[in-house]
């Protein structure tokens, strides 16, 4: 196997224009992105934002109409076949025929990569057991549950031991339990097999729980990127809610919040004070100490971290569910 490059994906100005009835529609408007080896990167955006189009371009399934990209160390345009050898792709529409038997489908797929049936079976057994799919070899694909079928898709996508795997909306259509289970398996791909994972999702919790880094895409451009923690911090900060004995104490507490670095204007409602700060935990410690020194005691304290939903709302003015 070729030595894994340090940068798995490097795209500059990647663009895709569709032409329908003479009208040009820019689905992806020039994207720059970098994914390092060993990262799990989440590509987050609402339906129709250009996620799948970008993913298909990076997988050689769709030719870009502009820009350049190196995927797994090879130029996307100059050597698409070489790229195909090094990447795995798990589509949101699946990968197996209902009528085929699991073992057959895996072996045939491996043969298209030039892997002999015997070697394919060995690799498949290893992957199937890693993804908790034992005893499915002779079953028809249609006989598997939704969650099992999706994990089979991942086995198919990994059979040639790619350095980089693309997962398109991996948990769409699965029940909550299967989703959580799938996430565990996706983390394993990186931890146990060293595979770089690039996944698209329109679920905040999925991006949040899986990704080392998140790229947020909207209307065909990347609007923000960072670790889940960074993104949440940068956008809205943590919310601190103090509950005090009476309104007098609340006024006094609100007055000293001004001493906190980067705090928002306090919002006082009766005996409750709300402020937003960059780092809620650190600010709270200082705030409580300051309050103590002027003899004001809080009877209730709450620090809430913003969710990625808040981030998306702040960036685009829309929620992901729209």
């Amino acid at each position: 196997m070729a030595v894994a490059p340090e940068t798995m994906i490097e795209a500059h100005g990647l663009k895709r224009v569709y032409r329908t009835r003479g009208k040009a529609i820019e689905a992806v408007k020039g994207i720059d992105l970098t994914v390092k080896a060993g990262e799990i990167v989440g590509f987050l955006g609402p339906n129709g934002a250009g996620k799948t189009t970008t993913l298909k371009m990076l997988c050689t399934l769709l030719e870009p109409t502009g820009g350049t990209a190196k995927v797994a160390g090879l130029d996307l345009r100059a050597d698409p076949v070489g790229v195909r050898r090094r990447i795995g792709y798990v589509s949101q529409s699946g990968s197996t025929s209902e009528l085929a038997r699991v073992g057959n489908e895996i072996t045939w797929h491996a043969e298209l990569y030039g892997i002999a049936p015997k070697a394919a079976r060995e690799r498949a057994e290893e992957l199937l057991s890693a993804l908790d799919l034992e005893d499915v070899w002779d079953r028809k694909c249609a006989a598997l549950s939704g969650g099992q079928r999706r994990r089979l898709d991942i086995v198919m996508g990994l059979i040639h031991r790619p350095q980089l795997v693309f997962l398109d909306e991996p948990s769409t259509g699965l029940d909550p339990q299967s989703r959580a289970n799938l996430w565990t398996h996706i983390r394993k791909l990186r931890d146990d097999f060293g595979t770089t994972v690039f996944l698209t999702t329109h679920y905040m919790d999925e991006a949040d729980s899986l990704s080392d880094r998140i790229l947020i895409i909207d209307h065909g451009t990347i609007v923000r990127e960072g670790t889940p923690k960074e993104l949440k911090k940068r956008v809205s900060g943590d919310a601190i809610t103090l509950t005090l004995r009476d309104t007098g104490d609340a006024e006094a507490a609100a007055a000293i919040t001004g001493a906190l670095v980067g705090a928002s204007e306090p919002n006082v409602e009766g005996n409750v004070v709300r402020i937003q700060v960059q780092d809620g935990a650190a600010a709270l410690a200082k705030l409580l100490k300051d309050m103590n020194s002027i003899g004001v005691e809080a009877i209730g304290v709450e620090v809430a971290q913003p969710t990625l939903d808040d981030v998306f709302l702040a960036l685009t003015g829309r929620t992901l569910r729209d």
């Binding site: 050689t60 195909r84 792709y89 990968s95 197996t96 209902e98 797929h109 298209l112 198919m156």
Partner: peptide, 16 residues
């Protein structure tokens, strides 16, 4: 039917 079940795309991503 094969296209809808993702089989065609899956094969197109192989070096075949």
């Amino acid at each position: 039917a094969e296209w809808r079940s993702g089989v065609i795309d899956r094969m197109m991503v192989t070096p075949a």
